[in-house]
Simulated assay, not measured.
Amino acid sequence: MYIPPAFREDDQAILHRLMRDTRLCTLVTATAAGPIGTPLPLFFDPDEGEHGTLYGHLARANPQWRAEPIGDAMAIFMGADAYVSPSWYAAKQEHHKVVPTWNYEAVHAYGPVEFFEDSQRLLEAVTRITELHEGTMTTPWQVGDAPPAFIQAQLRGIVGVRLSVSRLEGKRKLSQNRPAADRAGVARALAESPDPGDRRIAALIPLDPA
């Protein structure tokens, strides 16, 4: 990922938060037939391995797990994003030398990927990711709520994914390269947007203290 110095994010706590907050990421593997990508919810365990480990599953019918990966896999986590209009810059009124851009947060996790079929490991992975997403529900659904035979049948239709993270790249493009007046204009315009993603970006833009 191309990351200009102004947008580089190396704080591991922030990167881990972005990974946890991203409900759906994209798992990409390079193969002899070309790259393959699958949108997946992945569970991040920061305590397993030096840089953490990702777990998930994909459909057994998905050809990605059967294609031998070449080198490391990559999991792409996209956070909030927003279009930035040049009309929001104070600089537009001064010299008009401004153009549109896009603000966003992204994390790329790299590492060797393993696809596994063991039913016990699959059950553990499915249980952990279910607990992650059901945890905020008023009445959380649990894997144990379904009949064991039914769950075992469902497990036969999926394959587990384990990516041992060897490297993380983080980018937070939040108008840091613009003057304070331009950043304030962008933050103000996005904060007034009806789009929740725009408002999330607005709250992240660094503003000079008054």
Rank of each mutant, 00 (worst) to 15 (best):
G56M: 04
I3D: 09
L42S: 07
A73S: 14
P209W: 11
F77R: 03
P5T: 11
A82R: 00
R162C: 02
G79Q: 00
R20P: 04
V165M: 03
C25L: 12
R199V: 04
R178H: 12
R188P: 01
Y83H: 14
A61V: 12
A109F: 09
R188I: 02
I205R: 01
D208P: 00
A91Q: 13
W141F: 14
I76S: 08
P5Y: 08
P140V: 15
R183N: 01
A184C: 07
R128P: 01
D195R: 10
F44R: 07
W65A: 10
H16N: 10
D195E: 11
P140S: 15
F44Y: 15
T31H: 11
P69V: 14
A67K: 07
G79E: 00
A73G: 11
V98N: 01
N103G: 05
I201A: 01
A106E: 04
H108S: 02
V186T: 12
E94S: 15
D45G: 10
V186G: 05
L18V: 09
T130R: 05
I205K: 02
Y104V: 06
A180E: 09
V113W: 04
G170D: 02
A73T: 10
E68G: 09
A73Q: 06
S119C: 07
A210R: 13
P86E: 05
D72P: 08
V126N: 00
V28N: 05
G79H: 00
Q154R: 06
S119P: 10
F77M: 05
P39N: 13
V99Y: 01
A187G: 03
V99N: 01
F77S: 04
E94M: 15
L58Q: 05
T53L: 11
T38V: 15
L24M: 15
N62M: 09
L24H: 08
A75H: 06
R17P: 02
V99S: 01
F44T: 07
E117Y: 06
S85C: 00
P39H: 15
T26H: 14
F115P: 04
R162K: 12
I129N: 03
E114V: 09
H51C: 03
Y89V: 01
A189W: 01
L204K: 08
H108C: 01
Q12H: 13
V84C: 01
E114W: 02
N103D: 13
T53N: 07
P140C: 15
L155I: 09
I70T: 13
P69E: 14
M78I: 03
I14T: 12
W102N: 09
A149D: 15
H51W: 02
A67M: 13
E114L: 04
Y55L: 11
E134G: 05
N62C: 08
F116L: 08
P194V: 04
R162P: 00
G52F: 05
G111L: 10
V107M: 03
S193N: 08
Q154T: 03
H133F: 10
R188E: 12
Q120K: 14
R188N: 08
M137V: 05
L207N: 02
S166Y: 08
P209V: 11
L155F: 05
Q64E: 07
R172H: 06
D195L: 07
G52L: 06
R188V: 04
G79F: 01
W141Q: 14
G79V: 00
D198A: 13
S119T: 13
L15Y: 02
I14L: 08
A75Y: 05
L190R: 09
S193P: 06
E48D: 11
G34R: 11
A109C: 11
A146L: 11
P206D: 03
P179N: 05
